[in-house]
Design a binder for these strands. Structure first.
Lengths: 228, 228
DNA sequence: ATAGACAATATTGTCTACATTTTTGTAGTC
DNA sequence: GACTACAAAAATGTAGACAATATTGTCTAT
């Protein structure tokens, strides 16, 4: 469910995409070192392009860059995870609020069409597409809410949520079930703002509850902090 | 009032700073072209570094980069300006709410100390410092609210607000008067959440009201849109 | 005289080679 | 035997050169 800025385009976006996929599929573990030359060889591109991609991924919170040390897969701690979900609830509540103020009846089918895609991907067992489309639903809400800024914030939040989900999910990824999305659409169509907001908050809480945030922080890079 | 990410450091940050100052002081008008080689010569750095800086400024919404065309000082339209202030009200309301939940009595003096700096800069007529410190006050609130993510959002919002203020302010920049900050601190210290939130909303509304957002959109770069 | 094609110029995009910094390995000395 | 200092290796940071692209100017044919 990686959604890069539309301004990021071409080969750079593809590299971001592939690194993100590796993270989402847990082939790259949090804290893993990302050597530039190694990546350049793997993707058969120049090191300069790898640096660009890493810079983009850093601004999305997916990798951490330490000057003169290199890039690492980000390791969002439990605190950061809770922070992201806390802010997400606040932001998405505002999105729903604003969306219901602005959405026209003619736009409702857009939501239903997206939901259909989610269901199809879910039924044919395409996990990757399911994850992507689940995030896309939330982004579609933000887009229809008509605030470019809220949209940008949510894009960032969803990127980070995805990494957090990949890191902390306890077992089966029942994440972002389409059923809750369907209920949300109904309340939006009925212009039921309090109801829709409550469903959204419950929905996000469910996603958060499926995470194992009681686990100790992942192995940190800072040995000093880890060993003292 | 430019506040770059702490991850942006060294010479790159300095270039961002200088470009931002030129924009804030209206030496660079919205839509102005920023040629890379020209900037490299002016700042006596390599073009690669200029590109880095422009990339950072783009992510802060201060410049627009068009592929194969170059970089331009951003031209936030009236709609975007209203969007930024709308979201800012939402975000800063949440910041105040959360801040009062978390702030300790020992931290109140931090706010007062910052306010003192604002007053000093204001009294000695240091406009540049006044603008910077006004934004810094809002960022300090976000920092003490204890959410890194909210802090990052607000940093971005304030950057854009600054450009918008520079573009649309009607006459005298009575922007972000320290008096309203002082009243806010009092209500925070008294743990008066509704009162503090109301002051914050009024405060932001005052800033917005001083802008001339009735003016037609600034001269656009897109001639087709401008001349048809 | 004007429209279209072509050439020249200017600017951005990309890559490769070099410099700097960090890390790792080794030898020397107390 | 262990600690320090130094040196070699590896990775990142930087800059300059080259290629691709867009724009502007000019010439020719109708």
């Amino acid at each position: 469910m990686y959604h890069s800025k539309e301004t990021v385009t071409g080969p750079t976006a593809e590299i971001c995409e592939r690194i993100w996929l590796s993270i989402a599929e847990k082939r790259l573990r949090p804290g893993a070192r990302l050597k530039e030359e190694q990546l350049a060889e793997i993707f058969e591109v120049s090191r300069a392009r790898v640096r660009q991609a890493l810079s983009v991924l850093e601004s999305d919170g997916l990798v951490t860059i330490v000057p003169n040390r290199g890039a690492f897969v980000a390791e969002p701690g439990v605190d950061e995870a809770r922070d992201v979900f806390h802010v997400r609830k606040q932001i998405e509540a505002r999105v729903v609020e604003r969306l219901i103020d602005r959405i026209t009846d003619a736009q409702i089918p857009l939501l239903q069409a997206h939901l259909l895609k989610e269901r199809e991907a879910d039924q044919r067992g395409d996990t990757s597409a399911t994850i992507r489309l689940s995030g896309g639903f939330h982004l579609l809400l933000a887009e229809l809410a008509g605030s470019d800024f809220l949209f940008g914030i949510l894009r960032d939040l969803i990127s980070r949520s995805s990494l957090i989900t990949a890191m902390y999910r306890s077992r089966h990824l029942h994440n972002c079930g389409p059923d809750e999305h369907a209920a949300l659409i109904e309340h939006i169509a009925a212009r039921d703002t309090p109801g829709a907001m409550q469903i959204m908050l419950n929905h996000l809480q469910h996603v958060e509850d499926e995470l194992d945030l009681t686990a100790e922080a992942p192995t940190t890079r800072d040995l000093r902090q880890a060993l003292v």
